[in-house]
Design a protein around this nucleic acid. Structure first.
Lengths: 148, 148
DNA sequence: TTAAAACCAAGTAAATTACTCGGTTTTATT
DNA sequence: AATAAAACCGAGTAATTTACTTGGTTTTAA
């Protein structure tokens, strides 16, 4: 039940874009540097996020990426699902997908997988990039106080 | 974020043991047949469940496995964690384990992973094998009514 | 014109998964 | 005592997935 680097890096990158949300595009190079990620690999992830409509890109010199909308309208769930697919713990329980298992209708374990899936979706869909920014500010304010 | 076959088969096998909870041991062969799983592979899983104290084994002819305690005292969470390890979506957030990430204390994404982990744990720890048996009975009663 | 950037497709080494295989030991039954 | 059923154990392995890299091309501001 681990997230792959796609989801992990994707959330980091999107959070970086959210912190730098200003109307100006942000280059992959700078995101990669700040977040300590491979630029070439990030490129692949951004392609996924762009196809999902979560980011816009600006090509050419001084180009880069920016959130397609404000941080409070983008959830962690949308980010992860666009990069990793459904959060369903088992394939037979992927949203809006038929299962080929003929026992599905009376399958008890299936009910368990559905509950896990729903609870994961509920958390990730409830956290927006703005929430992360708020957490970030709180965390760093506390850090500043602590360090005097 | 998929469960591996270890967790999936493990829950199935434990549910099978719960349905057959009587004091008599149940052979791997019969579990494998009923659940449509490989006997040799199941053996590995049972070793894990035994080490975790969730099942007891009886060796020799007419031997087999049985739940170590009643179905209402065994949760899906215990089963999955004993076979797959922590449900943490990211290593830096495994319960009772130090992370080597020095930024951890002020890491925002970490807060997200913790919330996902907690919510998964909450669901799986709230579902006992007895709950699954109850669901099973409900499901099959409804099936019987439907089929007349 | 140059250089910075996004875009794209394909390749690849390493790790993980989902098993199997070939035994040994234990024990109820005959 | 012999047999057979069963758990126990360690190692091996094919297939798949992951986490990238490489080598380009296209676009566009300066």
């Amino acid at each position: 039940m681990k997230l792959s680097t796609r989801g992990r890096y994707g959330v980091k990158a999107m959070f970086d874009l959210a912190l730098n949300f200003s109307g100006e595009p942000v280059s992959l190079k700078s995101i990669a540097e700040r977040q300590g990620l491979s630029e070439a690999y990030l490129e692949q992830l951004m392609a996924g996020l762009r196809k999902a409509g979560l980011v816009k890109s600006v090509r050419g010199a001084q180009g880069g990426y920016m959130l397609s909308t404000s941080p409070d309208k983008i959830t962690v769930g949308e980010i992860i699902r666009s990069l990793e697919g459904s959060m369903a713990p088992v394939d037979c329980v992927i949203e809006n997908e038929e299962t080929d298992c003929e026992k599905a209708e009376y399958c008890v374990t299936r009910l368990v997988w559905e509950r896990i899936r729903d609870s994961i979706n509920q958390v990730v869909d409830s956290i927006t990039l703005q929430d992360m920014i708020d957490d970030y500010k709180r965390l760093h304010q506390r850090k500043a106080e602590k360090e005097g």
